[in-house]
């Protein structure tokens, strides 16, 4: 028994292991309710939902570790997807080939995201607007413009090959899905092993200390908001591939999903804390719940309840860890059971 408690203790101290357990438990539960859940097709659905969420959630991870917040990522997904859709429709109408059009569309989408990120960066580092307000402004402007540009409906008329690109090819992964995995790994190395990440943690942990150590904190902050915008632009493009059209409502509420994934992944909104692996698992748990509830016939509204419980658990665990007592908390739980 004490062995079990010890093991439980070490797991409680390790957010990633805990999230993995939660994920496995969810998969086991959904499979037990409907065995079709455990299939490549369903995993494919989960991964294709996960890919755009993880993109914006990774951007949000960088931002949250720096002590900021980016509320504009959902709108940026919408506006960049829409702008890319217009450009791809126009190229297609002018007889450009599908490959060429898709490549241009990708860069247009990412550039649009970078533009929004740059506006955020400008507001935050040059005019000293707090991130919450700065990104609230771009969030409103972005989703408003997406609707004005499109008149509300989806914009199609691009290359037919788009949707085929979003089809799973390697296990549950589509080719763009694999590219996203690779990108997430690279960004993980930059966050955890390189100067870029080190300084972002320092800024989120104690901005004064970071500045005193000679770090150009504003330049780093600008970079992460631009990064977040670029990733949202990629997510906008990914949605375009999936839907074969750019919709002004794609990514709606994406900022909340991203923040939820980051918090479930163990980051602190006060900054200085968080890991890419946590966010990856957090996003995966969110999309697993989405597909799982559909497969087992539970109203989608329950998803919000499940997500709320996960967030509450993550925050409680964080409090406990901050007090250095996560293991105590857990062993108390075990004691009560005995």
């Amino acid at each position: 028994m004490s062995n079990l408690v010890n093991r439980a203790k070490s797991i409680a101290g390790n957010q990633q292991a805990l999230l993995l357990l939660v994920l496995i438990a969810m998969i086991a539960f959904f499979t037990s309710r409907n065995s079709i859940f455990f299939s490549n097709a369903v995993f494919g659905n989960i991964i294709s939902d996960w890919a755009p969420i993880v993109l914006i959630a990774i951007g949000e991870t960088f931002v949250i570790i720096s002590g900021g917040i980016d509320l504009s990522v959902g709108s940026t997904v919408a506006i960049s997807g829409v702008v890319a859709a217009f450009s791809m429709r126009s190229l297609t109408e002018h007889g450009h080939g599908s490959t060429q059009t898709l490549i241009v569309g990708f860069f247009v989408s990412v550039a649009t995201g970078i533009l929004v990120g740059a506006i955020n960066a400008f507001l935050i580092t040059k005019t000293n607007v707090v991130p919450f307000i700065a990104t609230l402004v771009t969030m409103g402007a972005g989703s408003g413009l997406a609707i004005v540009f499109t008149g509300g409906g989806p914009i199609g008329g691009g290359p037919d090959a788009a949707i085929q690109l979003s089809v799973p090819k390697v296990g549950p992964f589509s080719y763009p899905g694999l590219a996203i995995v690779a990108l997430v790994i690279v960004l993980g190395f930059f966050l955890h092993k390189a100067r870029f990440g080190r300084y972002i943690y320092a800024i989120g942990s104690n901005e004064f200390a970071a500045r005193a150590a000679g770090i150009n904190t504003k330049a780093y902050l600008a970079k992460i908001y631009i990064l977040s915008g670029a990733l949202a632009g990629m997510a906008g493009y990914y949605y375009y591939l999936r839907l074969g059209c750019g919709a002004p409502t794609s990514g709606l509420g994406g900022e909340l999903q991203a923040i939820a994934a980051v918090v479930i992944g163990g980051a602190a909104l006060s900054g200085g804390e968080g890991r890419i692996s946590g966010t990856v698992l957090g996003a995966l748990i969110l999309t697993t719940v989405t597909s799982g509830l559909i497969i087992i016939n539970v109203a989608a509204n329950w998803k919000q309840v499940v997500v709320a419980i996960l967030i509450a658990a993550a925050v409680l665990l964080q409090e406990a860890r901050a007090k250095g007592s996560s293991s105590k908390l857990l062993s108390n739980l075990f004691k009560k059971k005995n």
Partner: peptide, 19 residues
């Protein structure tokens, strides 16, 4: 329900097609 989002509708239908 899709909350006006094609991507959510897409997820719903994709899972139904499997189910």
């Amino acid at each position: 329900y899709s909350q006006s989002q094609p991507s959510v509708a897409n997820t719903n239908v994709s899972n139904w097609l499997t189910k």
